[in-house]
Amino acid sequence: MSPDLLLNQENALPWTERLNFARDIARGMEYLHERNIYHRDLTSRNCLLRELPNNSRQAVVADFGLARVVQVEPNTQPDSPRKMSVVGSAYWMAPEMMRGEVYNKKVDVFSFGITLCEMIARVHADPDDLPRTNSFGLDVEHFRQKCEDCPPAFLQLAERCCDLDPSVRPWFSDIVSITTAIIQELDSAPNGKYDITSRGSSIRRRQ
Score class of each variant (00 low, 15 high):
131 P>K: 04
140 V>E: 15
95 P>S: 02
86 V>Y: 06
99 R>E: 05
122 R>N: 06
136 F>Y: 12
88 G>P: 07
85 S>E: 14
152 P>M: 13
95 P>E: 03
176 V>Y: 11
133 T>F: 11
103 Y>I: 00
86 V>W: 00
120 I>G: 10
93 M>K: 00
121 A>V: 08
117 C>V: 00
143 F>M: 04
176 V>E: 12
106 K>T: 13
125 A>H: 07
88 G>Y: 02
162 C>T: 04
172 F>A: 11
155 L>Y: 09
140 V>G: 15
160 R>E: 15
101 E>I: 06
113 G>P: 01
87 V>P: 05
87 V>H: 06
115 T>N: 08
90 A>V: 13
115 T>C: 09
80 S>Y: 07
150 C>V: 06
80 S>N: 09
98 M>T: 11
104 N>C: 10
94 A>I: 05
168 V>Y: 07
102 V>S: 08
89 S>G: 02
100 G>K: 04
175 I>V: 13
108 D>T: 00
159 E>N: 11
126 D>C: 15
157 L>K: 07
109 V>M: 14
110 F>H: 08
117 C>H: 02
98 M>P: 00
97 M>D: 05
164 L>P: 09
152 P>F: 10
145 Q>P: 06
169 R>L: 05
87 V>A: 11
170 P>F: 00
177 S>P: 01
154 F>L: 09
93 M>A: 02
131 P>A: 04
155 L>K: 07
121 A>R: 03
92 W>Q: 13
165 D>L: 06
119 M>Q: 05
142 H>I: 04
115 T>M: 15
100 G>N: 05
134 N>Q: 15
124 H>I: 02
177 S>N: 14
154 F>Y: 13
154 F>W: 09
174 D>I: 01
88 G>I: 03
172 F>P: 06
166 P>V: 02
101 E>Y: 12
127 P>E: 13
128 D>P: 03
121 A>F: 02
99 R>F: 04
88 G>R: 02
83 K>N: 06
153 A>K: 13
119 M>K: 00
126 D>N: 15
162 C>G: 06
109 V>A: 15
119 M>A: 10
167 S>W: 12
167 S>F: 11
169 R>D: 08
150 C>N: 00
146 K>F: 10
144 R>S: 08
161 C>M: 14
80 S>A: 14
98 M>Q: 12
103 Y>K: 05
111 S>D: 08
118 E>F: 01
144 R>N: 09
165 D>M: 01
81 P>D: 08
142 H>F: 01
168 V>A: 10
143 F>R: 04
147 C>H: 01
125 A>M: 03
168 V>I: 12
170 P>R: 00
104 N>Q: 07
81 P>N: 07
97 M>K: 05
158 A>D: 04
100 G>Y: 06
161 C>W: 12
147 C>Y: 03
173 S>M: 06
147 C>T: 10
161 C>Y: 10
152 P>A: 12
113 G>M: 00
161 C>I: 12
